[in-house]
């Protein structure tokens, strides 16, 4: 150990720092599989004696977690797909079509993206009640499609601005319409960027809290984030249930992370610099 310490001081410092980042996940996982009596006796830091899965099962049934997962998947999936489509249409007109006043249109989308949701939340709540969309998953899908598309337009417009124009010109000479150029050339060529956007929109929407909290009040419509946040806010959970909730909340994020890790890290770089 001491020789290792002397030989790899930087590595060891970084591993300790990384462990600090991961330890909360480990503690949660360890405690979610302890029985309440075991937890009461040995506290949160001991290793579990065996696998006790009733806590997880109880929690799953009590909050109807399957339904919450389905809602989150439905909302995030729809938003990701629709927002990518909307972003492409906008970015096609701005980046390739170079419509007049595009700088202003683009600035508008950027500012819309920066706008705090607090400045929209009450009117959105009020208007959705007026048109009968309050407490529906559709309302959340519509709002987030637009909010995410603001970022997507900003990013894609600059990517498409550098699209090789010869390809488009050639297709036009061959008689392709603008619509065909978009779907048969621009979309396939920019597929990597679109993939990044799809993943980002999905995870961002999955993690959203304020608007879904306000818009989705009935149990059947709530997302994972809202259901867990509300439960936590009520302070009604005991330690076992808290850990079950935390573990079940962490797991989907962990799955997305492992599946999309490369896209995520690459995409952040693209998004930040452009």
């Amino acid at each position: 150990m001491t020789t290792a310490l002397r030989r790899y001081p930087v590595l060891i410092a970084l591993v300790i720092a990384a462990l600090f980042m991961v330890v909360p996940f480990l503690i949660v996982a360890v405690n979610a599989v302890k029985s309440p009596t075991e937890y009461a006796q040995n506290g949160p830091l001991s290793l579990p004696d065996g696998l006790y899965l009733d806590g997880l099962k109880d929690f799953w049934e009590r909050v109807d977690y399957g339904q919450k997962l389905f809602n989150s998947l439905l909302i995030s999936g729809s938003v990701a797909a629709l927002a990518v489509v909307l972003s492409i249409l906008n970015a096609y007109a701005i980046g390739i079509g170079r419509v007049r006043g595009r700088t202003w249109v683009l600035a508008f989308f950027v500012l819309a993206n920066m706008l705090p949701q607090e400045a929209l939340v009450y009117p959105v709540y009020y208007l959705s009640k007026e048109v009968g969309l309050y407490d529906t998953r559709l309302s959340v899908i519509i709002v987030f499609t637009v909010i995410q598309a603001a970022f997507g337009t900003y990013l894609l417009a600059s990517v498409l601005g550098q699209f090789p124009r010869e390809i488009i010109e050639a297709a036009r000479i061959d008689g392709a319409s603008r619509w065909q150029v978009l779907w048969r050339i621009v979309v396939p060529v920019s597929r990597p960027t679109l993939g990044v956007l799809l993943v980002f929109f999905f995870i961002w929407t999955w993690n959203e809290f304020l608007l879904p909290l306000v818009m989705l009040i009935s149990n059947d419509n709530q997302t994972v984030s809202v259901a867990l946040g509300v439960l936590q806010g009520q302070r009604l959970m005991d330690a076992t249930m808290t850990n079950a909730a935390a573990l079940l909340g962490v797991l989907p994020a962990l799955v997305f992370f492992l599946v999309f890790q490369r896209t995520l890290t690459r995409g952040i770089a693209v998004g930040a610099v452009k």
């Binding site: 994972v224 909730a245 935390a246 994020a253 995520l264």
Partner: peptide, 13 residues
Amino acid sequence: VLPIAVAGIVWSW
């Protein structure tokens, strides 16, 4: 990548 609500549950515990 963790939803903030979940991070909140983890840390408040």
